[in-house]
Each structure stands twice: as C-alpha cells, then as structure tokens.
Amino acid sequence: MRNNKKKKSNKLLKKVISTLLSFLLAVIFTVGSVLIGVYIGFLNENRIIDGLNYKDYYSGVESTFYENSKDISTPIGLPDTVLDGIVESEKVHQDVKNYVVSAVNGQTFIFDIDSLKNKLEENVRGYFASQEWEIQPEQEATIPEYTQLIADEYIKCVKLPLVEHFASAKRVYQKILLFAIPSIVILSAIIIFMMLHMQKWKHRGIRYIVYSSFATMLMVAIPGVVALASGFYKHINISSEYLYYALVKYISNGLWVFIYLALIWIVVSVALLFLIRFVKNYKN
C-alpha cells in the first residue's frame, strides 16, 4: 500500500519535472529559432537585394536623382536638358547593388562619378554654345562646383539609408550567435537526455520533446503569421515610394523566414511522432 503510494508520487513528480523540462526545452528551441530567423531573415544581404528588386527601386533612385538634380539646376539657371544622359539606368542599377553588397560586408564602395561629371560639363558647355553665350570667368568657375553638386546628389540617392550600420549589426549578431547556438545545443542535449533518462519507456520521453517542438512551432509562427496577416508593417511612414516598397518587401521576406522555420518544426514534430510509433512497436 505504502509502496504503491510512493510509486504514484514518484510518477507524478516525474510528470511534473518532465513537463517543466519540456517547457524549458520549448523556450530554448524558440530562442534558437528566433536567433536563426533574425539572422537568415533580416541580417542577410540577399533579403535586402530581394527587397530592392521587388518594385522599381532602381528606377525610383534614378528618377529621384534627376528630380533632385533639376532642383539644383533650376536656381542656378540651367535647363533640365543639361542633365540628359548624364547617367545610364544600368549604371544606377549596378551602383546601387554594388554599394549595398559592399556596405553589408563592411567595405567602402568607391563611386565612379567621372563619366557623370564629364558628360554634365559637356552638356553645360553645349547649352551655352546653343544659346550663343560666351562663358564668363565666374561661370567657368561655377561649372566644377555645379558638377560636383550633382555628383554628390547622385551618391546621396544611390546610398541606401542605414545600410552602413548593417555590417556592424551583423558582426555583433554573429558574435552573439557564436556563443548562443552552441549553448542552446548543449542545453537542449542535456534536457533531452534528462527527459529520456527519467522515463522507463523512451517513447514517453520523446513525447515530451514533441510537446516542445509543437510549442516551438506555435511560438515561432504566431508573430510572423499575425504580422503578415495584419500587415501592420505596411503602415510604416517613409517618404520615397521606392524605398517604402523595398523596406516592406524586406520585412515581409524576413517574416516569411519565421513561417518556414515553423514548418520545419512541424516536420520535426511529425518525424518524432513516427519515432514514437517506431519505438513503441520495437518495444512490443
């Protein structure tokens, strides 16, 4: 009678401890998944390039550059035509891409603006010639100042805001991952070992791992699903349309990574369920 009571109490204690360990395992799995999700989904230069490719980013940069250049040229008294052909769409595309890749890798991208300045100067002189005006010394001195202003504007437009901080953020994050992932693996291994070791029948221990993996799936998926379904991130207030679409695409790409991670956890959970069945059959 007393033995029976003790057995029951032991069983209950095992259950409670296994449940607590299972919950702890779920939390550890979730932390690991979130760390990996952020790294793959947000601190990934390919996600940025995907965002830029999504909707007219490059043509947006090009048209903004021309509009801003007009705003520089107009007060100086030069017509919009002096800007014709000073930069090719292909160059804008390449410069944006190369700048982003360099910036996210912590390198400095050197812009080749000589061709832009030369073509612009040629156009300005052409304009004066077409008006049959002689360029005065003061105007001659203004030409390099003006071409430099336009070149600076080009660089300003091509540079993706905040992307230069990306490299340093990624470096810090990689250091965190270097410490966190092995810790998570070791902790998980210890907890799994304890859960399996505590149970007389291994399939019962695996069952607690399945609880953890299903819970991880839910905890990883819910924020992503809620964000994607509500689309609240689409309310972000950014003035340039092309930048807005690139950012929204970048965020949604990042959120989808969490959905994919949740799917992986479903696969893991189902595999563990099959393992339980296999171990049970093996036992019989």
């Binding site: 919950f23 939390v27 609880y211 819970a215 799936m217 839910l218």
Partner: peptide, 8 residues
C-alpha cells in the same frame, strides 16, 4: 503545446 505557448 498550447499551454506552453500561452505560458511562454
């Protein structure tokens, strides 16, 4: 898993 998620 639901309980774990809510508690988490």
């Amino acid at each position: 898993p639901l309980i774990f998620t809510v508690i988490g």
